[in-house]
């Protein structure tokens, strides 16, 4: 599959600070790639490198097979988390302005945002604004779409509909790069790239990132006491409904609880993506 955007061993330093360090990233046509990382991990800088908004200090970056140029950027669509709409313009004016900037001044307002044509962007509910921003970013039929937390704040149905559109975009021969903190969004991606401290530290499908990691699921009549005990002992423990999920071997957890006279059933279950992510990006706590 054709490579749309690529960073090879790319680094970017700002004075003494290294924001991105030897990162590799590929986005091919027809795929949705998720870029994950805590705040300050280097995601935004890496995207700015890919789009040619910043030159790399080291390594190479390619956009559509050549170093990023203004011309290549015309083939990219971008929806920031803040949506990038002009609050004081109507939906139709937002559309016309962006379409004109990309040289499509006569493009008609698409059907899905037509109902709000005459309304100011700032007056619309956030979910609707997001739909408008998305349509505007797609106005020039970009081959590479870059989305920052595309469904944040959208209800379950709106989220399902937006992902249908993102998938539809990928299906009609575009590549999509999604940066997100939202594990539901991450699980919608074909591949994930995880960054920490400027480096790519894991990559693959959600299942490959989880890589068989497990947590101990604890059910105990005195759940609150079990939580306090495990928490005070420095384990990473999270409440899940009636159960506790602990990032530690079941035997260790069982030993601790029984030593304190707590009767618990412990089951080893597959970690979810969020648990795996947190375990990958945080150094193990001292035992």
């Amino acid at each position: 599959m054709e490579v749309l955007a690529e960073a090879r061993n790319a680094s970017r330093r700002f004075g003494a600070f290294t924001a991105v360090s030897g990162a590799d990233l590929l986005v091919r046509r027809d795929e949705v790639v998720g870029l994950l990382g805590a705040n300050g991990a280097g995601k935004t800088t890496l995207i700015r490198l890919l789009l040619g908004l910043l030159p790399p200090s080291d390594g190479a970056v390619c956009l559509f097979g050549a170093p990023p140029s203004r011309l290549a950027r015309r083939r990219v669509g971008y929806v920031p988390q803040t949506l990038g709409l002009y609050a004081g313009l109507t939906v139709a004016e937002n559309w016309a302005f962006t379409a004109a900037a990309f040289g499509n001044a006569s493009a008609p307002v698409p059907e899905q945002i037509a109902p709000w044509k005459k309304q100011l962007a700032s007056g619309l509910p956030l979910g609707t604004q997001r739909q408008v921003a998305f349509a505007v970013a797609l106005s020039h039929q970009p081959e590479l779409l870059v989305l920052d937390e595309p469904t944040s704040g959208v209800g379950p149905l709106g989220r399902a509909r937006l992902w249908e559109e993102i998938r539809h975009t990928a299906d009609r021969a575009a590549g999509v790069l999604v940066t997100t903190h939202n594990m539901e969004e991450a699980e919608q991606c074909d591949r994930l790239v995880v960054m920490a401290d400027g480096k790519v530290i894991a990559r693959g499908t959600a299942a490959e990132i989880i890589d068989g990691a497990t947590v101990a699921e604890v059910r105990c009549k005195d759940r609150n006491r079990a939580f306090r005990l495990l928490d005070a002992s420095g384990f990473s423990v999270q409440v899940h409904g009636q159960a506790l999920r602990v990032g530690a071997p079941a035997a260790t957890v069982g030993e601790l609880l029984s030593r304190e006279g707590l009767d618990a059933t412990i089951e080893v279950v597959a970690a979810n993506l969020e648990e795996a992510f947190v375990a990958i990006v945080t150094p193990p706590a001292p035992a």
Binding site: A38, Q81, H181, V278
Partner: peptide
């Protein structure tokens, strides 16, 4: 936890869960 990264989110939930565990 809106807009908070997953690591801080886990820490926030630990804080909230601990309060819940204390009643």
């Amino acid at each position: 936890t809106t807009g908070v990264d997953p690591v801080s989110r886990a820490e926030l939930w630990r804080l909230i869960s601990a309060a819940a565990a204390e009643g």
